[in-house]
Simulated scan of single mutants.
Amino acid sequence: MQQLTFSSAGLVHWLVVDVVAGVVSLNGQREEAEFLRELPDPVKRASPSGSMAVLSRVRDETTAVWMRTWNETAAIGHMGGAAGMKRPPWLEDAVSSAKGSNLWVGAVREATHIARMAYETAVVRDHREELNGIPVDEDDGWLATWLTFVQMDLWDHAREETFWPLANNGIEFEDMGLIVGGAQRWWPEDAAERRAGA
């Protein structure tokens, strides 16, 4: 991820539209998901009209889901295993770069909170599985699944094209997979480059 380049607009779009739309889908907020997916590309400091109200509803629901998940899990056992999980550096770098872009400032602030709450909810869900005696596979748990989709969406905004091979039982296929990145939408001829975390 450190070798990929992103535009400021691409990072903001990824955080506000893709990451939050994924959270909204988990929350069951269909109207909010449709609204977010129809937002224009980020080009100015001010957030799009109506976006703050939508993001506020998403933030409230995401916080409610986090609280329910935390309380249900705490009722089963000690929360120590879920409390200290650090977010991966690539995620922190991408969010920080989106925040530093000065595009859609209010929407980015709300989306940052929503993404962090969604991350913590996935961590707590994995911990609940463990408390219930269900082993959590490092590649297939709630957190791993959430991070995979977030990372794929991020890669889709990169200047560089990346081949992501499909796998079966841990064996990757050399000739079957997804190609992400390189979209002209984010990389017209005159686009300025920005490294993740820069």
Rank of each mutant, 00 (worst) to 15 (best):
Q2S: 14
Q3F: 10
L4M: 06
F6M: 01
S8G: 07
H13Y: 14
V19C: 10
V19S: 08
V20G: 02
A21D: 12
G22T: 02
G28Y: 01
E31Q: 09
E31M: 04
E31D: 13
A33D: 13
E34N: 13
E34M: 12
F35K: 10
L36G: 06
L36P: 10
R37C: 06
L39T: 05
L39K: 11
P48N: 09
G50M: 10
A53Q: 14
V54A: 04
S56K: 08
R57A: 07
R59D: 05
E61S: 08
T62A: 13
T62K: 00
T63N: 02
V65W: 12
M67V: 11
T69Q: 11
E72Y: 05
G77M: 13
M79W: 13
G80V: 09
G81D: 06
A82E: 04
P88A: 10
P89F: 07
E92W: 05
E92N: 14
D93P: 01
D93A: 13
S96K: 11
S96Y: 03
A98P: 05
K99V: 09
G100I: 09
S101I: 08
N102Y: 09
N102R: 14
V105T: 15
T112H: 14
H113L: 03
I114C: 01
R116W: 03
M117A: 06
A118T: 03
Y119G: 02
E120K: 12
V124P: 02
V124T: 12
V124N: 04
D126G: 09
D126E: 07
H127R: 12
R128F: 06
R128W: 09
E130Q: 15
N132R: 15
P135S: 05
V136W: 11
D137S: 13
D137E: 10
W142I: 01
L143S: 05
A144F: 03
L147W: 04
T148L: 08
M152Q: 14
M152T: 09
W155Q: 07
W155N: 04
A158H: 00
E160I: 00
A167E: 11
N168D: 04
E172W: 03
E172Y: 02
F173A: 10
A183M: 01
R185S: 02
W186T: 00
W186P: 00
E189C: 00
A191P: 01
A192N: 07
R194K: 14
R195Y: 07
